[in-house]
Design a protein around this nucleic acid. Sequence first.
RNA 1: CGCGGGAUAGAGCAGUUGGCAGCUCGCCAGGCCCAUAACCUGGAGGUCGCCGGUUCAAAUCCGGCUCCCGCAA
Length: 309
Amino acid sequence: MYKIVFFGTSEFAVPSLKALMDDGRFEILGVVTQPDRPVGRHAVLTPPAVKLEIPAQAGIQILQPEKLKDESFQTWIKGVGPECDAFVIISYGKILPQWLLDLPKHGVINVHGSLLPRWRGASPIQAAIAAGDEKSGITIMQLDAYMDHGSIIRQIEEPIHADDIGSTLHDRLAESSGKYLPDILSDFLDGKIQPREQDHTAATYCQTLAREDGKLDFTKTATQLERLIRAYNPWPGTWMDFDGQRLKIISARIGAEDNAKSAGQKFSRDNTPCLACANGTILEITQLQPEGKSAMTGAEFLRGKRNWE
RNA sequence: CGCGGGAUAGAGCAGUUGGCAGCUCGCCAGGCCCAUAACCUGGAGGUCGCCGGUUCAAAUCCGGCUCCCGCAA
């Protein structure tokens, strides 16, 4: 049995953790995840998704160090690390320092949500949809000292559909990871797979996203914005200013062009609120959400808001 | 007790000097039309989130409560 320690925090890591827990080839000596954080409107202290997946009777040790330098964590990881075949890190949320990468026998294995070297960084799924990529996928790789830079063990492609939003692609990639990771990890540890170095000249990068990044810029084309709206749904979401408030745009489609409209102009067509974008391209808003209100369709929005045009 | 918006017909919203509850849709019936998601006529559908208070009279003023949501984290 291979001994591993699992580092992971968010939903993306859950299918992989479950797959490894259920697989007799692996013994999980511990799960390292972020501390419980205040979440939501009333800042309720909430455990990370990964922690919630671990049944109490599994007897798996859970560690939630605030910092990797915490003395108790260091003592534990340095004790258990050298007997590990590998650490598996998926969506953990911290950069692992070199001393930690050096602990396990075969290093640290990472799953990244893109086909590296494309989309290194913190938001590969949103970046792929926003860029109009036709396919995405997961990369199982060795972690080295640079971000998403290590040698590739294996990649699994996943097509991006025209109606994919951030969460749907996220979920498929997470499932894909859970489905393939155990076998690939096992083969790698058996020495059956020789990792290959990335083509670093082909690397592209994406940033950590914040809510501000979701502000729609109507000097872009409707095609670009429609992709962005899907990519950023549900996180970080896209929005525009209207009536002194923030209007979240949940979904939209591309309408027939109209060169008489100027970029950013609001109008309606067939009971659907529309926005003019670059070069006369038109975005038809199908679903949106005003501040303080629940999500509604574009037609519903127009019934109450007479000042859209 | 982090800041803020909201709850009125099936949906989206108006409605404060307190005085019979409205609009745009949808729905039902009928009409017009070759036809229609278009147009015309009529109709059904509300304990105005809940509890209490003030008043001759409360959607509206006062107090308490529940739920939904935007921001922030």
